[in-house]
Design a protein around this nucleic acid. Structure first.
Lengths: 346, 346
DNA sequence: TTGAAAGCGCTAACAT
DNA sequence: ATGTTAGCGCTTTCAA
C-alpha cells in the first residue's frame, strides 16, 4: 500500500551490523539500563533520524497489547456539554500520546454494550464512560480485566472505580434557594424519569431547599424518549395549565429548558415576568436569550481535565494498585435575567 | 492481562484436528470459495460460538494493514455543526463495522499535520477532513499512498479527491435576496479573513445578490483568532458606529452572529427593529431567541451521510479506481423573525 | 554489553 | 478440499 517500503527495525540493525535487540532497547529508552555504549546509541539514533524510521504502531500494539488508545463513551457527542468535554479530553490525551476513539451511547444499554465490546476488541487501554443504567456488570468485567475505567457525570454506588462529576445536589440546591430568595414560592422541578445518580441528586437538592424553607414541591418527571420533543412539550404544557399558580420552573437539563421555553412562548407566558426559569447546565447562548437564562454551570474544563488525568495515572504502571478516587466538583450558579426578583403583584 | 487466556484460531483448529487455514477461510467467509464442506464449516462455526472465540483484531490489523478505523479531522468537535456531523458519521460508520478516531484541527496547519501523522501511524483506513489552509501537500501524500480522503465543508480546487459540502454561494445569495426583498438596503457582510472555499463562496454570494439589485456592499472581515471574542466584538462595534446607516447584517458564521448579538445588545440596537440579522449556519436555539434568528441551514445529516458513504465506497476494493465526486448540497434558508420586513420610517 | 531466536495471532501463497 | 508454513515488525528471554 505504501509507496515506498517503510524502514523497519531490522533495516536499522542490518545497516549497522548489530542486532534488532539492541536497536529495540535503544528505541525504547532502555539504552542506559542495558548498558549499551553511548557511541552505539548515538549511531542508532542518527540512523533513525536519517532514515526517518517510524516504528510500526500496529506491530507494537500487537506485541504489547497496548494501543495507546482511550475509549470515550458519552451519552451523545452532539450534546454541547459532552462535545466540550470531548474536546478537552482530546487535547489532553493527544498531548500525552494517546488517541481517542469515541462512541455515543444514547444512554441505551444495548448500544453501550456493543460499544464496549468493540472497544475491548480493539484493546483500548482505558475507558472514560458516562454510564447508562444497567451497565454495571460490563464495567465490572472491564475492571476485572484490569482495564482502568473512569466514570463521569453519573456513577454507580456499588462500583469500585474512579468517578468525576459535579455536585448536582448542591448545584440544584443553590439554584432553588436563589429562586426562593428572589420571592418565588411555587417552584416546579421539571426532570426526567432517569434513575441515574446525577438526576436523583438534582431532585434531592430541589427537595432539600424547599423543605428548608417550608415550601411545597411539585416535581414533574418526563420520560425523555428519543428527543421526541413534541411529547415533552405536550407534557410541560399540560402541567403548566394544571398548576397555574406556578411562578418558577427549574429545569434539570438544558434540553428540557429548551422545550419549556418553546412551550411558554406558545402559550404566551413571559419568562422573567410571568414565570422565572433556571436551567441545570449552562449553554454558550444562554446569555443572549431575552431574557438571558440563569443556569447552574458545570466546570467542563475541570471535569475533562480530571477525568483524563485520573485515567492516565492509572495507565502509568506504578506497582501499587491505585487508590480509586471519587471526585465531586462544585457547580456554579450563573445568575441572569430569567430569575430576577419577583415583582409584587406579578 | 486478560483474566482467562483468549481462545485463538489455533485452538479452534487443534480441537477440530484441522488446520488454521481452514478455520481462517471459514472465519473470513471464504468457505464456499475454497469449497470447504458444509459439514466442516458448520463444525467450525459451532465451536466458534461455543468457545466464544473472538478474533484478535490487533493481530489481524497487523497482518493485513487494515484497521477498520476512520480518521475524522474536524475544525473543532465542540462546535455544534461539527459535533452533529461527528455524531452522524459515528452512527453510520459503526453500523458498517468502522470505528472513528477524531481530532480537532483548530484550523491550525501544524496541529493538523501532527494529527495526520498520528492517524497515518495508526494506519487508519481513510480520512474525513475539514482542511485548514495549506494542508494540500499532506493530503496529496495520503492520496499517493492510496488512502481515501474525503474533504468536507471546504475544498481545494487543485486536489483530486472527493468533496462534500453545501452550496455556500447560493445559500448566502438566497439570504441576501431575502433581506433585500424585505426592504433592506444597507446590508453588511461580517465574515472572517479566511481564504477557505466555504468563506470565499459566501462572500461571492453576497456580492452577487447586491450587484443584481444595484446595492452597495460593505464587507467587514474579522481575523477570527482563538475565540478572542472581545476582539471580535470590538471590531463589530467599531464597524457599526462607523456605518450607522446599516440596516441589516449577514453573519457568515453563527459564532460571528453570537458576537454580533452581544454587541447589539450592549449598544442598544434592537435586532429585528433597528437592524435585521441573518446567520449562515443554523443553531438549535435560534428559534428560541427573541426575536428568533433567520439562518441559512446546512443539511447536516445529508453531509455526514454522504461523506461516510463516499469514504466507505472507496474502501470497498472494487477493481476500478473510483471516480472522484464533488458534491454540493443545497443550503436552506430558515426564515424567522430577525429578518422581518423592514418597517417604513425605521 | 550485545546477539539469537522464539513467538504474539493471523493470512495467504504454495503444497498436496 | 484441506494442510504446511512463512512471515508481518516488534519485544524480550536466554545465552554468550
Amino acid at each position: 500500500m505504501q509507496s515506498k517500503k517503510r524502514v523497519s527495525i531490522a533495516d536499522i540493525a542490518r545497516q549497522l551490523n548489530i542486532s534488532v535487540t539492541t536497536v529495540s532497547f535503544i528505541l525504547n529508552g532502555k539504552a542506559k539500563e542495558m548498558r549499551i555504549s553511548d557511541a552505539l546509541t548515538k549511531k542508532v539514533e542518527d540512523l533513525v533520524q536519517q532514515t526517518n524510521y517510524q516504528p510500526n504502531v500496529l506491530a507494537k500494539s500487537f506485541r504489547t497489547g497496548k494501543t495507546n488508545t482511550i475509549g470515550l463513551l458519552v451519552e451523545d457527542i452532539s450534546n454541547p456539554f459532552f462535545a466540550h468535554i470531548a474536546r478537552q479530553i482530546e487535547d489532553n490525551a493527544y498531548q500525552r500520546g494517546y488517541k481517542i476513539i469515541y462512541g455515543s451511547t444514547e444512554d441505551n444499554l444495548e448500544k453501550t454494550r456493543e460499544l464496549i465490546t468493540m472497544f475491548a476488541d480493539r484493546h483500548v487501554d482505558g475507558y472514560i464512560i458516562t454510564a447508562p443504567e444497567g451497565i454495571d456488570n460490563e464495567v465490572k468485567d472491564l475492571l476485572e480485566m484490569k482495564k482502568p475505567v473512569i466514570l463521569f457525570d453519573r456513577y454507580y454506588p456499588g462500583l469500585e472505580t474512579n468517578y468525576i462529576g459535579v455536585d448536582n445536589y448542591k448545584g440544584t440546591y443553590d439554584g432553588i434557594v436563589h429562586l426562593i430568595e428572589n420571592g418565588y414560592k411555587n417552584i416546579v422541578l421539571v426532570t426526567t424519569t432517569s434513575q441515574q445518580s446525577q438526576m436523583t441528586e438534582r431532585q434531592a437538592g430541589y427537595h432539600m431547599a424547599l423543605d428548608q424553607y417550608g415550601l411545597e414541591s411539585y416535581t414533574h418527571k418526563i420520560a425523555y424518549v428519543d428527543k421526541q420533543s413534541a411529547v415533552v412539550k405536550k407534557q410541560i404544557a399540560d402541567f403548566m395549565s394544571a398548576q397555574p399558580q406556578t411562578d418558577a420552573v427549574f429545569f434539570a437539563t438544558n434540553y428540557l429548558l429548551a422545550c419549556g421555553l418553546e412551550v411558554f412562548k406558545q402559550i404566551g407566558l413571559k419568562v422573567g415576568e410571568d414565570v422565572a426559569v433556571v436551567s441545570f447546565d449552562d449553554h454558550e447562548f444562554f446569555g443572549l436569550f431575552t431574557p438571558s437564562i440563569t443556569a447552574v454551570a458545570q466546570p467542563v474544563q475541570d471535569i475533562a481535565h480530571q477525568a483524563i488525568n485520573l485515567l492516565l495515572n492509572e495507565l502509568q504502571p506504578t506497582g501499587a494498585p491505585s487508590q480509586k478516587k471519587f471526585i465531586q466538583l462544585p457547580a456554579h450558579l450563573v445568575v441572569r435575567e430569567s430569575s430576577a426578583a419577583k415583582r409584587r403583584g406579578a
